[in-house]
Amino acid sequence: MKQVALYLSIVFVSVSCSTKKETDAVLKIINPLSIESLKMEIPENNPQSESKIRLGARLFFEPALSRDSSISCGSCHLKEYAFSDTVALSDGVGNKKAARNSPTIVNVGYQPHFMSEGGVKTLELQVIAPLENEDEMALGVIEACRRLNQIPYYQDFFQRVWGDSATPFTLTRSLASFERSIVGGKSPFDDFIDGDSAAISKNAINGMSLFYSDRLACNTCHSGPLLTNFKIENNGLAAEYGDNGLFRLTLDPEDKGKFKVPSLRNISKTFPYMHDGRFKTLDEVIDHYARGGESHPNQHQAINGFELTDREKNDLIDFLESLTDNRFQ
């Protein structure tokens, strides 16, 4: 919160009495909000390469990776919606539906753990889940490799990139490499923190100070360049949850209803919201937080309600919308 106030004052000072270059230099140092301050961990056994990313991209949109060849990764992670889906629960193979809302995978390479309870440790291992999941692609990694190895195009492509066929290793590495390349840090908000004080509206600036204020305290959890601290928290969605999140992994009653704090970048495109897609609009999300949640025993203390005028609410939404990287179209 203090950082933002400090930062805002520096912007105003810099616009009047310092050159843009100097401003930039200062901002880079003091400003923790730029995505460039993040470092992506690349596993040693999977360095990024142009051709591998291209293979991964091709695989990402390959419906042959689902049992009935009807869906690809890209069917649930739609590029034009920042690689998320527009429905609460996406369609899997047959008449199945995924158990949770499809999250955005923009900037997913910066995350320390994956899935809503954070139980998956690497992006490579995450690839196994949708392929095996009976409600999603229902094919399995081994069968997926067998299929790919029968298609001359992929035989070639895998040989060129890996000097090997499609295997659980090469398939998961290729997809993970592609996912690490999906980085989005060019939003009006980024231009603003880069020193372009006109990049976002006055209303959005007001919304930004609300977001970081003690009153709303959104940044208790939604902090840093991706507007998440990556922790697994209970944000009070229900008095009793159907899907208990982290509890599934630890079986500790204190973990009931805890889900990974999601990034709020591209939030205007990743509706509907929360792990089950229960809220369709940002308006509904803000109402939820303003109400102070549904009083779950594990609800985080920062979810304690606040009052907001209609105008403030709109300003907050303007700020959230300024986090949209418009290249995902």
Binding site: M115, G119, V120, K121, L125, I128, E132, I142, P168, R248
Partner: peptide, 18 residues
């Protein structure tokens, strides 16, 4: 390797929890 009991071949992996 596929022949190893800990490979995916055994179909004993809890993928969502690694």
């Amino acid at each position: 390797p596929a022949s190893d009991p800990l490979s995916l071949q055994g179909a004993m992996y809890w993928d969502w929890a690694t």
